Amino acid sequence: MGLITGVIAFFYHLPQIYKWIFKPYYIISILMSTAFLIIRKCPGLCENLNTEREDGNPCDFDWREVEILMFLSAIVMMKNRRAITLEQHAGNLFMFSKVANVILFFRLDIRLGILYFALITAFVMTCKQPLYMGPEYIKYFSDKTIDAELNQDSRVTWIVEFYANWSSECQSFASVFANLSLKYNCTGLRFGKIDAGRYDEVAKRYQVSTSPLARQLPSLVLFQSGREVMRRPMVDSKRRAVSWTFSENVIREFNLNELYQASKQMKKGRAEKGEEQKPSQPGGGSEDPQSELDITEESKKDK
């Protein structure tokens, strides 16, 4: 039954998979991750390769190559245990596959190794992983707007993500954070983001280190009445982030279900109070005229 469900889910999401995979970054990454396998098994190419097999067949893997590929599989499985999105799984697979390909090509022929390493370097410098551009209810702050927005209404709870474009963890968490905003955004609970790499002064003011060694990006901070209530990951005495997995556990850790229900009850209570005090007011609903998230002033393309 589980297998049938998986197959049905695969075909149901097949259009989305096609849309996701047919991008230059993923197409080239797949080709470069499987380059050694293609060359070793491709008729017309493999016959000219060196081999350490006892039977002298250049179109099959020798024992050392099999060992490297098995080690690659083990590393990818270990790293993907903490992966929460398809992008994270694919990113881990691509990264370690390229490292294994570099080792395999240098072992096979130093000239092939140098050529492959040069191609990898050019690819990393010119082709970036696509950013999440899907639907979301997120306010993008700048250094001039973040303080005013957080202190504008004491009844609004903000969950703000400090991120940087160069951080792969931030890129992987982008879709998860967007889905959370779609599910939990309401009048009293809102979601925001600020580029800590771009606005370094804001990051320092809110004590978020942008150093890769500190491992504080992304950082999620919960603000109530303009004051910080909690953040993840937490920071130890050495100003280094305590290991924490960014996934759906954000719901549990930040009590999003409770905050959402409390916000809805608060909105309902204000609406009922307004109806009692102003029964003749046309369309007497919520006193808060801004029932939806403000349209972002900064384009998502600035990310």
Score class of each variant (00 low, 15 high):
23 K>N: 08
294 D>M: 09
124 V>Y: 12
160 V>K: 01
58 P>Y: 13
6 G>R: 00
117 F>W: 08
169 E>G: 06
241 A>I: 08
84 I>W: 01
202 V>T: 11
46 C>Y: 09
104 L>H: 09
250 V>I: 15
238 K>V: 06
40 R>Y: 12
134 G>R: 13
270 R>Q: 13
279 P>T: 06
70 M>W: 02
120 I>L: 14
222 L>I: 02
221 V>H: 11
185 N>E: 12
190 R>D: 08
69 L>S: 15
158 W>I: 09
195 D>T: 05
228 E>N: 02
217 L>P: 11
197 G>E: 03
146 I>S: 07
287 E>F: 03
246 F>S: 10
5 T>E: 10
26 Y>S: 08
67 E>D: 12
205 R>E: 15
133 M>R: 01
55 D>R: 06
44 G>F: 04
174 A>V: 01
87 E>A: 04
47 E>W: 07
78 M>K: 04
37 L>T: 15
167 S>N: 05
31 L>V: 14
181 S>E: 10
251 I>L: 11
287 E>R: 08
167 S>D: 11
61 F>V: 07
216 Q>H: 12
238 K>T: 06
94 F>I: 15
2 G>N: 10
235 V>P: 01
82 R>Q: 08
300 K>A: 14
154 S>F: 07
260 Y>I: 06
57 N>P: 00
193 K>Y: 06
253 E>L: 07
47 E>T: 01
